[in-house]
Computed example of a mutant assay.
Amino acid sequence: MSKHPPFLGKNDLIIVISPSGVIDKDAVLKGAKILEEAGFKIEFAPNIFNAHFKFGAKHHERLSDLQFALDHKEAKAIYCARGGFGITHIIDALDWTRFKKHPKWIIGFSDITALLHAAFQNGYCSLHASVLQGLPKLSGDYQKKLIEFLSGNIKSLKATSTFNKAGKASGQLIGGNLSLLVHQIATQTELDYAGKILFIEEVAEPLYHIDRMLLQLKRAGKLKDLAGLVVGQFTNISEDKSIYGQSVEEIILSHCEEHNFPIGFNFPFGHREENMPIAHGANVSYEVSENDAYLNYLNDNAENNLP
């Protein structure tokens, strides 16, 4: 069962790292300013601005920064500057021993999905939310929601869609970017999906690739024992239904049609200005009707639940 790290108070320290793709320095600094104005202290890891071709720094430099952040005794959060590609180059070399003595929120999404999974495997919830350089691009309301979450003010998620598959479920909430979910299969950061409520999002993929990835999850046995499926935003899709014959929603439903778990669509998280923070690893209840879906954090004093 997953514990949640301590929530943040005024003047608590957030360490910013760049464990994946090369960053936009100006955007990262703007994101850091938003956090500072919210009352947090910011420290940049030593190699964060060492761009190396497509990566935020050389592999050993990014590993060093991430290990430094995991080990830090005072920090209350680790904020990933961006996703892109690169976390899986270094993730298997991490040592989580000191993190468990001084747990902290790990924040990010997209490529950072693999790191959220590693935190889950080591017993802790993490925060699926905008990367730091994306924070200035969020609407003001969603910037506020992220800061509120870090401070312990947790919001439930709700969505509306005509594609829903009705039902009720409860369980631990895991997931992230669909591509990264597929890429974790048969690796050290592969998760057991049985009994879990899975959430997914994706960006800039053609419909045939989305179909192929859902099929891969199905063939790998990842869908058959789910408790529920939470579908976020699939943005900048490079094909439409007139080309492929199915929409994203229809592709998902077709691969899940033999199962009875609830499926809710159009949740406000993903690669867009409305990116709701999600507690990866938390216990939740999930209720889906014909048009509406609600995801609520449970509070029964269990160690893996949020207040």
Score class of each variant (00 low, 15 high):
Q233V: 12
L178H: 06
Q188E: 14
K222G: 07
V284E: 01
S170Q: 13
F40H: 03
I252F: 07
K241F: 04
S238N: 10
A186T: 12
I106S: 05
P206A: 13
A169D: 08
S247T: 15
F163A: 09
A119P: 00
N291V: 09
K73Q: 11
E190S: 08
E61W: 04
Y142C: 06
T235R: 11
L173Q: 03
S64F: 15
G39C: 04
K3S: 08
S289T: 15
Q143F: 09
L138F: 01
D26W: 05
D24S: 12
G86L: 02
Y193H: 15
N266T: 04
A51N: 10
I48R: 03
Q188L: 11
K155P: 01
D92A: 11
R219V: 11
Y79P: 00
V131H: 07
T189H: 14
F7W: 05
I174R: 00
H280W: 10
V28F: 02
G108L: 06
V231R: 00
I17K: 00
Q246N: 14
Y142T: 06
D95H: 11
A45G: 08
L150Y: 04
D225M: 07
S289D: 13
N47M: 10
T187I: 04
M213S: 07
I154G: 00
H183Q: 13
P277K: 09
H60E: 12
N177C: 13
T113N: 10
T235A: 09
D300P: 03
S156H: 13
S110K: 03
A45K: 07
G84L: 07
I42W: 00
K73R: 13
E250V: 10
L298N: 15
F85T: 04
